[in-house]
Simulated scan of single mutants.
Amino acid sequence: MKYILILLIAIHLSACITTPQVKSSEVAPAQNYQFAGDDESTKITGLLEKYGNDWAYHGAFLTVKIGNEEVIVRKPVDRYNFSGEVGGNTYRDKKVSASCIGYAVTDRWTDVHCTVFVGNEQTVTLTF
């Protein structure tokens, strides 16, 4: 009995510290944004990796890329409705952040909209 209890505790602990399994990866359509002072627009893209087990999602990681720079890299979004504020690196010496809101479509599907900010400037809204 003692050994079974130790084994169960070890299994539970290993399940708690393992990297979550990505259940689906969703790429938002690329959008162009023209920053003040630029002659050309810059492409902004995003990747949302929802993770969980076979029957439920348990959260998501967001990656945002502006031009060729990954500025928000695998930052967690709220585990229940994929909503929240996430921040990353900087782009042109301005902090980059995203404000995400999840909209439940069904009991198994949520659309996610993330508005990307560079400094105080609202740029694009990525839809997953």
Rank of each mutant, 00 (worst) to 15 (best):
D54P: 00
C114W: 05
D111R: 06
D54C: 06
V118F: 11
P76G: 10
R92W: 06
N68H: 13
A60L: 00
K94N: 12
W55S: 13
L48Q: 08
W55Y: 11
D107R: 12
V118Q: 11
A98I: 08
D39G: 15
N89L: 12
A98Q: 07
T90W: 02
E69A: 10
F35H: 04
H113M: 09
Y103D: 14
E40Q: 14
G67S: 11
G84W: 01
N81F: 07
S83K: 02
E40T: 13
D39E: 15
C100R: 03
I72H: 04
T110L: 06
N89M: 10
F35C: 03
V96H: 08
S97F: 05
F61Y: 15
G84F: 02
S83R: 01
G67T: 11
I66W: 07
K50M: 05
I101E: 13
A56D: 01
A104G: 02
D93W: 11
D38N: 14
E40Y: 12
G46I: 11
A36W: 05
A60P: 00
L47Y: 01
D78A: 05
S99N: 11
N68L: 13
S97V: 09
R92N: 14
W55G: 05
I66Y: 08
I44D: 08
I44R: 11
A30Y: 09
C114P: 08
F117H: 09
I101Q: 12
K95Y: 04
D78V: 02
V96Q: 08
Y91R: 10
V64I: 15
G119K: 13
G119Q: 13
N120T: 15
V73M: 07
T115S: 15
I101G: 04
K43D: 03
V96P: 09
S83H: 02
R92E: 08
G46D: 09
N53K: 00
D111Q: 04
K43G: 01
Q34V: 12
G102E: 06
I72W: 05
T42P: 01
F61C: 04
I72T: 05
N53G: 03
S83F: 00
Y103K: 15
R108E: 15
N53A: 01
S99G: 01
